[in-house]
Design a binder for these strands. Structure first.
Length: 392
DNA sequence: AATCCACAGGAAGATTAGGATA
DNA sequence: TATCCTAATCTTCCTGTGGATT
């Protein structure tokens, strides 16, 4: 049930598979396939389809005795030109060729070396670049795309995968034209399609009768709300299964799905808060303190940007951090809002001006706990708001 | 209807950090 | 290694505004 698992058949992606395959099959006839760009939100099966077609291509290549190389690279991990070239080159190493070291060679030498390797190997090489938008600089893409003109016996074809539709807009026009020969867009799954996908996995992974009839529809519906992300749906189902098992329940029921959902949400928040920059953390803390103070004193007035800024300034002084301007603080507050940690909406209090009404959108204590992991904040969380906050 | 508060949020320039280049 | 560039961050200065109050 892991999202990285690729089943033997991918449901509801036949069209995409056929499409991508038809673009790449010329490789089997020793013709150069076009370069392809694949777009689509997360969890729409881009990577799965690409890998799947790649596997099929290798199989067909074996049958027809055609040399096909298929290389998958995730550009989030391999994100520089040098390492990209090095990575591809290492696919071709054999007993006589020397390995390219991690560092030390000039990039163009790696390029030349790689080119010779590919040329010596012959055949067609399909390179899948997952998350191409993470690649630093377009030099890397440029060098790959012009490689075909330097090769004599071999051909290279690039499949770029991205979830950013606007990615090519910022690309060097030369790269853009050579890479964007073919474009594919993967639409999100709808709830029904998600159900089929989940069913397929459940059949493989779970015993019959270990799951309530309404669990799959629920998981699918929840994930469909979140832009039809299949990964999300699977995570939800897997987490529900794990929770059910841990609780020694006989069946996975709706209850566990609900539990799993809130657990996933908390995990997400934890991760977000943990990796927040220090200034944002301070602002978040200011909001937390104010809300705690309000609760204790039975105040129900909403927190405003001004309140937050005041407290933020005080805890900055206390921790000897320099504070940002109110303008910047306001921006950071809206960032926190977009991350879903707080809710901030603009309201007008008439004569009392226009401001944001700020509320925490999850448990105070949870976030306090996360902030306390940092020693600097451990002390600050004990900070008491002095005096009475101004009267309403 | 006019006023006016307490900010929102845009524009442009300054600062800074990190990476590329010589 | 020095310096140059770029993108991200932050500041300064600004105009705009919803609606309770006058």
């Amino acid at each position: 049930m892991r999202p990285t698992y690729i089943p033997d058949s991918l449901l509801h992606r036949d069209k995409e598979i056929r499409n991508l395959a038809s673009i790449l099959v010329p490789a089997l006839k020793k013709e150069t396939p076009s370069n392809v760009f694949i777009y689509g939100k997360t969890g729409t099966g881009k990577t799965a389809v690409a890998k799947f077609v790649g596997k099929e291509l290798l199989k067909k290549g074996d049958e027809t005795k055609t040399k096909v190389n298929f290389i998958y690279i995730n550009c989030e991990i391999v994100d520089t030109q040098y390492r990209l070239l090095q990575n591809i080159a290492n696919h071709f190493i054999n007993e006589w060729s020397e390995r390219i070291p991690f560092t030390g060679w000039p990039t163009d030498e790696v390029y030349t070396k790689l080119m010779h390797m590919i040329d010596a190997n012959g055949g067609i090489t399909v390179v899948i670049l997952d998350e191409v938008d993470k690649l630093k600089g377009d030099e890397a893409l440029y060098s790959l795309s012009r490689m075909n003109s330097d090769l004599e016996n071999a051909k290279v074809s690039i499949v770029g995968i991205s979830n950013d539709l606007k990615f090519t807009e910022f690309l060097d026009p030369r790269v853009k034209s050579s890479l964007g020969e073919e474009n594919m867009i993967f639409p999100p799954y709808d709830a029904g399609e998600l159900q089929d996908i989940l069913k397929q996995r459940v059949d493989i992974a779970l015993k019959v009768d270990s799951i309530d009839y309404d669990v799959i529809p629920l998981c699918s519906a929840l994930a469909a709300q979140e832009h039809g992300d299949a990964r999300r749906a699977l995570d939800l189902l897997r987490m529900s299964a794990e929770l059910a098992e841990r609780n020694k329940a006989l069946k996975i029921t709706k209850k566990f799905v609900k539990l799993a959902q809130s657990k996933i949400e908390i995990d997400r928040i934890t991760e977000v808060v943990r990796t927040l920059p220090a200034q944002s953390k301070l602002i978040l803390l200011a909001i937390l303190l104010q809300e705690k103070h309000n609760k204790k004193n039975g105040l129900n007035g909403a927190i405003t940007t001004g309140d937050v800024y005041e407290i933020y300034n005080e805890i900055c002084k206390k921790s000897r951090t320099d504070s940002l301007t109110q303008r910047r603080t306001a921006d950071l507050i809206s960032e926190l809002d977009m991350l879903g940690i707080i809710t901030a909406r603009v309201i007008s209090k008439g004569r009392h001006g226009r401001t944001r009404e700020i509320k925490m959108s999850s448990s105070l204590e949870d976030i306090f706990r996360i902030l306390k992991e940092d020693d600097v904040f451990k002390e600050l969380t004990k900070y008491k708001i002095r005096g009475q906050t101004r009267l309403m």
